[in-house]
Amino acid sequence: MSEILPIIVAKYNYWLYIILMMIGLYAMISKNNLIKKLVGMNIFQTSIILFYVSIGYKTNATIPIIENAHGDSHSPHELIIHAADYINPLPHVLMLTAIVVSVATFGVALALAVKIYQRYQTLEEDEIRMRLTEE
């Protein structure tokens, strides 16, 4: 146990994302209600976002906005920039768009759920399947 604990503490970000991801996956597979499935999908997406943002992190680094580069007082060639001083901007870019796209696609999923409810008067998956076999 004394050997495992430091490993967990050093990599707790991965543990958190894996736990969240499995909660989302479990909800998507096993829940019967479509809205609960959508909530599971959202938890899954959030865990991926956390994972991406956490791998871009560097200890003792600041946000990816270059300091002292505003305005014209400094010529860009005079600036000395160390990559270790700024966190990785790439995961942030990817997740920035992923968040907005996930909200938009979640809206489409909700619209589909509304249409399913209007047609079958229920959002429970087994009841929908029953209605489908009846028709």
């Binding site: 707790y12 992190y57 560097k58 200890t59 990816p64 600036l79 990785n88 790439l90």
Partner: peptide, 22 residues
């Protein structure tokens, strides 16, 4: 490890973005 500045994600493309973007 968490916050490793030399991890694969932080070592190939990202230094170019950080140093050359300005």
């Amino acid at each position: 490890a968490w916050g490793d500045p030399n991890s694969p994600a932080n070592s190939y493309l990202s230094p170019h973005y950080i140093q050359k973007s300005i």
